[in-house]
Measured scan of single mutants.
Amino acid sequence: MDCGICYAYQLDGTIPDQVCDNSQCGQPFHQICLYEWLRGLLTSRQSFNIIFGECPYCSKPITLKMS
């Protein structure tokens, strides 16, 4: 499936590997796309290497662990 942010399947050789945990959403994202999206939200917060925010599609909580 394509990334829900950039709408591409491959981005710099990677495929969407982050998925919204909401079973009714399940939208996939590239890690870098989701990172940039969450960084741009005023409501997002970060604790060590984990960013907490809202899914761009369903607005439910989503987390991103940076590797």
Rank of each mutant, 00 (worst) to 15 (best):
D2A: 10
C3E: 00
C3S: 01
I5G: 03
C6E: 01
Y7C: 13
A8V: 06
A8Q: 14
A8D: 13
A8G: 14
A8N: 04
A8Y: 15
Y9C: 02
Y9V: 04
Q10H: 12
Q10I: 12
Q10F: 13
L11W: 02
L11R: 12
D12K: 06
D12H: 03
T14D: 11
T14V: 09
T14R: 08
I15T: 10
I15N: 04
P16T: 03
P16S: 02
D17V: 11
Q18G: 02
Q18T: 11
Q18W: 07
V19Q: 07
C20W: 01
D21V: 11
N22V: 01
N22S: 04
N22G: 04
S23A: 14
Q24Y: 13
Q24M: 13
Q24K: 15
Q24H: 07
Q24I: 05
G26N: 06
G26C: 03
Q27T: 11
Q27I: 11
P28Q: 15
P28V: 10
P28N: 15
P28G: 09
F29Y: 07
F29K: 00
F29S: 03
F29A: 02
H30T: 01
H30E: 00
H30R: 00
Q31G: 05
I32K: 14
I32E: 09
I32C: 14
I32G: 13
I32L: 10
I32H: 10
I32W: 11
L34E: 01
L34K: 00
L34T: 00
L34R: 00
Y35W: 05
E36H: 06
E36S: 13
E36F: 14
L38R: 04
L38W: 13
R39L: 08
R39Y: 05
R39K: 11
G40D: 07
G40C: 01
L42E: 14
L42W: 10
L42C: 13
L42V: 14
T43G: 12
T43R: 07
T43V: 08
S44D: 06
R45N: 06
Q46W: 08
Q46P: 04
S47L: 10
S47G: 14
S47E: 15
S47V: 10
F48Q: 13
F48K: 06
F48A: 10
F48S: 06
F48M: 13
I50A: 10
I50V: 11
I50Y: 13
I50L: 09
G53W: 01
C55D: 02
P56K: 08
P56W: 04
P56Q: 03
P56R: 04
Y57W: 05
Y57I: 11
Y57G: 11
C58R: 00
C58S: 01
S59D: 04
K60R: 10
P61H: 01
P61E: 15
I62L: 09
I62E: 02
I62G: 01
L64A: 14
L64V: 13
L64R: 02
L64S: 15
L64W: 07
K65W: 06
K65S: 14
K65L: 05
K65G: 11
M66T: 09
S67H: 12
